[in-house]
Design a protein around this nucleic acid. Sequence first.
DNA 1: CCGCACCACGTAAACGCTTCCAGTACAATG
DNA 2: CATTGTACTGGAAGCGTTTACGTGGTGCGG
Lengths: 331, 331
Amino acid sequence: MNLEQVARRAKVSTATVSRVLNNASVVKGSTRARVVKAIEELKYHPNLHARSLAGGKSRTIGVIASNMENPFFFDIYKTIESDAHAGGYEVVMANTDYRSEQLVTSVRLMIGRRVAGLAAIVSEMAPDLIEELNESRIPVVFYDVGTPRQNITNIRVNYRRGIEKLVDYLYSLGHRRLGFVGHHAILGPINERVKAVMDAVARIPSLEVRTSADADTLEGGRQATRALLATGFAPTAIVCVNDVTAVGALRELRERGLRVPEDVSVTGFDNVKLSEFCYPALTTVHIPRERIGHIISDYLVPRAGKAAVTDAEIVIDPELVVRDSTGPAAV
Amino acid sequence: MNLEQVARRAKVSTATVSRVLNNASVVKGSTRARVVKAIEELKYHPNLHARSLAGGKSRTIGVIASNMENPFFFDIYKTIESDAHAGGYEVVMANTDYRSEQLVTSVRLMIGRRVAGLAAIVSEMAPDLIEELNESRIPVVFYDVGTPRQNITNIRVNYRRGIEKLVDYLYSLGHRRLGFVGHHAILGPINERVKAVMDAVARIPSLEVRTSADADTLEGGRQATRALLATGFAPTAIVCVNDVTAVGALRELRERGLRVPEDVSVTGFDNVKLSEFCYPALTTVHIPRERIGHIISDYLVPRAGKAAVTDAEIVIDPELVVRDSTGPAAV
DNA sequence: CCGCACCACGTAAACGCTTCCAGTACAATG
DNA sequence: CATTGTACTGGAAGCGTTTACGTGGTGCGG
């Protein structure tokens, strides 16, 4: 079922069929009608592979994320998708599960697909990736990690600042023993996020902190919290790497009979919708996911009268959102 | 950057490069080494479009879902993805937002991509879709809606039975006034789900029910619940179309000062992970999402020694999961 | 020393589309 | 009536692969 068959049935050349398909150029009304009729009768669907091969372009942009299960990533994805569709583009998505090996695979896949643009919303990194991407000439936006380069734009939030706001707030409530629940992807004291917490705590001598980590899921947050408490360390507040893990923490505390925030305060990060709907509603740090999504699509989706892609670094300053999961430290 | 350039650099023909790329046929070790070296030096990435055009096959399967934001769909997606990767296949995903017009667009897109198989996990339907799909000769699995056909397999859960279990359980707890919170996609009394609720209730004369609907999100569940209560109708139990909307309902009730389950009972559907983590944990109906995912990939991902795709209808019987959001009806 | 099988590789024809370059028909113009 | 322009359509060359087929070497038995 190809152009030729349609052409034959409509008694025109393949060139003409192609023209009506892309409603480019001028095709006489009667001819166009014949072609359209043939297309419908044959239930013809153009082969997109052939199309982008011949055309040299692909009108699809790729989005790679660490964990689409986490609404944080999904919210960004959704915004990009919506913008892309508005601009006549398609989106293909890939998950890495925080594995840098999977990141490399996914990036290769996207390059192989000759995407028009690529967004990598990931916390992991692979050494030669930037080089490889640079070589491919594909416009790229990295969120979180990455290095600005020709054709590579960088967006990151000032995670450090967000954590500081959180820690200062908890300190002001009288908290002195803090727990930090992370996820495996950011395990290890070298990690930027853990370091941010350590540094924020280190500024205030009377503060003490212990960390724990598990998967970036509800269950992971629960397990990490359980492990943290199993050490005998009794934090008066638990800072979680994001809202999802915080909801996991909430459950573990509840099952241990600890009240939030009377006995233990809990904080999230991201300000995902769920953070308002869980109980108690989470004190968290807002990260403007829609804005991030729009920035990304501005860079990747060619739009009439838009500036060209340039290398740049964009830093977003997150802000504290106080809700019900935090309160004065227990005596 | 194409096969020819690689071939030239390795001083072989494009055929040989292709052979080492697909490590098919026998290529002498030394030659293979030269080619591999050239590939890496040039940072060559095969053009996947050309590949599937020439090969005639695509090694990717498509998944279309109504709302990936809802973990129910995502869980199924994840299972399919994992199975597909295990079988050397890629997956492309598309969202319909419950809009049948978008369903059509997505299906066309998938056909255009000449996917090796297609899974449609959707609650909406479009008239000519089945016909169009049938014409395309692509193996298809429908979940929820659809009609078995040559090359089309159908999976559905016995939603009706699940609702009956729920209603019977609530009745046994003394509930007589029920609210049903749906989402827009299933609005209208013609809908299968609403009908299932109506019929389940109709079996028991003393039971009364009112319905309401909004988006399939946390916020939607909340709004629908608000609308339901705003009518003055005071249900002693609220049956929600799924867990996500139920969590939304939970929040609305909490903000109105209604205790769950003392004042009002709430039930979800799907048994998504979140249903255990919210407070109170939801009484719900378990739908085996992983199993559904596996069934789908069994049908779509060609695997060594696997039976061919046949038309069939598979029905899954869901079971009740009682947790903390339900209790005896308030007097 | 010849012939044959076989291995390793090259040649070239698809795959289904886009698009440049011509070509035809016909109206408008001088 | 010849000339130029315009509107539409066709021919054919790619796009980057895969793959059937062909060919040149090598090793072996006879």
